[in-house]
Design a protein around this nucleic acid. Structure first.
Lengths: 241, 241
DNA sequence: CTGCCAAACTGGTCGGACCAGATCTCCGCG
DNA sequence: CGCGGAGATCTGGTCCGACCAGTTTGGCAG
């Protein structure tokens, strides 16, 4: 963390303060000059930090004072920082992230399955097969799953979809993934949807692929939620959620 | 445009240059000092502009020189600017935007329909009914449709979904919507899916609502695509798509 | 108490400067 | 002729101090 530039770390501090709800929406942030003094840096450095907050969508800088934006107007990027705010992360937020991600992957699976050329289709099938046959650890399986998601989005040929995926890329894995000390998801639980997915890809049935993927992710989601809730039953709630 | 701050308009110029493909990915942007001289401003102003490009995800600023990022790593916000780059906008990109938006709304409809409380459900039904019964113009109908989307997302209770929606909010309407001089979409074309949607909401059938919405949007998408392709058959292709 | 004007404050821009790290150049060694 | 490395050069990061033009605020007059 210490290798960051100063404006970066100042922005991070302010960002977390805001996300933690220390400033109410619409409220004015301290002035650049005040913050410069508080952090012991030049005003220009604080300015740089402010720009970051602005582009994150959580602050609105204008003459008269920078103001805190409502969280709904923020950029997707805040999700990552919201997740990092607590450890273990807020289970609800994790679940919402996974839910949204699942939905998008389902969409991508539909479009990608329908539009893939033969090479892309072959690659997809390889990945699904790998996931069934060589699932050493959850971590590894997750890696394959991620690649599969990329393959779907790639094959969809939809740039917008791709950008959404990238915005959602949120290193949720760091917060969310079962660690290795955790027992892996039993193959039995996910084999059925994986086989269905495989068939769908082969038969170019987008709708079916989409449903198979939803089926698959819903299982995983449920496991992660249960684990997090268990870990987190003493966490205090709060923040701008 | 002239009321913008300078760093804003400089950022816009550089942004459009990049999106137009004048700099290849990975290529170095001119230095802050060079650009300051070219634009006749102080270096700090160019720096501010650079920060914007960085947070837009289209440039990577580091010692040694700022570099152009691949478009896939950009923020969702670039879509709006990509659309604005040509007039009429690139039909393919518009279609991709609408496709993603449709899928997204289908997701929201599924979740929102399943989770809405009675007040929210009533509001949804009102909107759908309005859309059937009082469709004076496409513009007006679009307004209702947008409100309906908000209602779904709101009812889903999913913050991540909400942020994606906001990111996708892209004033696509400005580029994409049928103008008033255009004949409105005949009610006959959209009445069936709207009725289906209504029933789905009443019966709390998320899957059905999702499908109804896809059915509805696919019709509209097709119309818009046809219109744009017709308008655009002489446009030159290019840019980082 | 209200309305309005001036003072204080805020962000935007400027000029100029120094640092540390990245990049480039060019010379000398193999 | 090729290659590696040292030094010059360039780049972004930060700082200082200053001025401008809008915003906000405080207090004075009505």
């Amino acid at each position: 963390m210490s290798s960051m530039t100063q404006d970066h770390s100042i922005a991070a501090t302010l960002r977390d303060d805001i996300l933690r709800g220390q400033y109410r929406r619409g409220e004015r942030l301290p002035s650049e000059r005040d913050l410069a003094e508080r952090f012991g840096v030049h005003r220009s450095t604080v300015r740089a930090a402010f720009k970051r907050l602005e582009q994150l969508g959580i602050a609105d800088i204008r003459q008269g004072g920078a103001r805190v934006n409502p969280i709904e107007e923020a950029s997707l990027d805040v999700i990552e920082h919201l997740l990092a705010l607590e450890s273990p992360p807020n289970p609800e937020l994790v679940d919402q992230t996974l839910e949204t991600l699942s939905g998008f992957l389902a969409m991508a699976a539909r479009l990608g399955t329908e539009r893939a050329d033969s090479a892309q289709r072959a690659a997809m099938l390889t990945l699904v097969t790998e996931m069934i046959e060589a699932p050493d650890t959850d971590t590894q399986r997750t890696e394959i799953f991620r690649a599969l998601g990329n393959a779907f989005v790639e094959a969809s040929g939809n740039l917008v979809l791709r950008l959404v995926q990238h915005g959602l890329r949120t290193r949720y894995s760091d917060y969310v993934l079962p660690d290795d000390r955790q027992e892996a998801v039993p193959l039995a639980v996910i084999e059925a949807p994986l086989l269905r997915l495989k068939e769908s890809i082969e038969s170019e049935d987008g709708t079916n692929a989409s449903e198979a993927l939803l089926e698959l992710t819903s299982t995983i989601r449920k496991r992660i939620r249960n684990r997090l809730v268990a870990e987190n039953n003493d966490a205090s709630r709060g923040g701008p959620l």
